[in-house]
């Protein structure tokens, strides 16, 4: 059983109370995994594994780096969400920040300093970022700083040393 507060606190950044059952969350080397009952049983008897079940994220230094499966779990209920147009979605996946001009819809917080999930027009979560200006007042320019996007999978392939789990 692992202390899941680090994962739950991350979900709260987006206004989500994640119903994680502590009995099925395992911490290993700073990485958190959500296991099924069968996997829990197997991994308890046979240690030494490197990855199991759903990877939730990793504590690195002072911060928690979420996995994409965790972001997708949060995305189902997130209050803070921004929907962007196709061009902004593609640039975001390429690691770029979100500009006000590309935002189609804002739900939940629009306050500077808050975290928000970024969605494309298909309703798919592409990652998350931090709001850098009060979006209600902002007319144009930089709106959300990219903190993590799904293009990370490609960047990991190019730079294997940066890989997480």
């Amino acid at each position: 059983m692992a202390e899941t507060s680090v994962v739950k606190n991350f979900a709260r950044l987006f206004g989500v109370e994640l119903p994680l059952d502590n009995r099925f969350v395992v911490e290993r080397g700073g990485c958190y995994f959500l296991l099924s009952e069968k996997l829990k049983d197997l991994t308890e008897k046979r240690g030494g594994w490197r990855h199991a079940g759903t990877y939730l994220g990793k504590v690195k230094g002072e911060s928690f780096q979420p996995s994409f499966p965790l972001l997708f779990m949060i995305a189902e209920k997130a209050k803070n969400r921004i929907v962007v147009d196709d061009k902004s979605a593609w640039l975001f996946v390429c690691g770029r920040d979100i500009f006000k001009e590309g935002i189609l819809k804002i739900e939940g917080s629009s306050e500077k300093g808050n975290c928000t999930l970024i969605f494309n027009r298909h309703g798919e979560c592409l990652g998350y970022g931090k709001i850098v200006k009060n979006l209600n007042k902002l007319k144009s320019g930089l709106a959300v700083k990219n903190l993590l996007d799904v293009g990370d999978f490609l960047r990991r392939e190019r730079h294997p040393a940066n890989q997480e789990a």
């Binding site: 959500l34 099924s36 069968k38 996997l39 197997l42 991994t43 046979r46 030494g48 594994w49 490197r50 990855h51 199991a52 079940g53 759903t54 990877y55 996995s67 994409f68 499966p69 997708f72 999978f153 990991r156 392939e157 294997p160 890989q163 789990a165």
Partner: peptide, 23 residues
């Protein structure tokens, strides 16, 4: 080990939930 990292990335990207990986 390096190939295992490629494996775990695939599992994360494809949202696989039922796998345990051993080196």
């Amino acid at each position: 080990k390096q190939r295992l990292e490629a494996l775990t990335n695939q599992l994360e990207r494809c949202r696989v939930k039922n796998t345990v990986v051993y080196q």
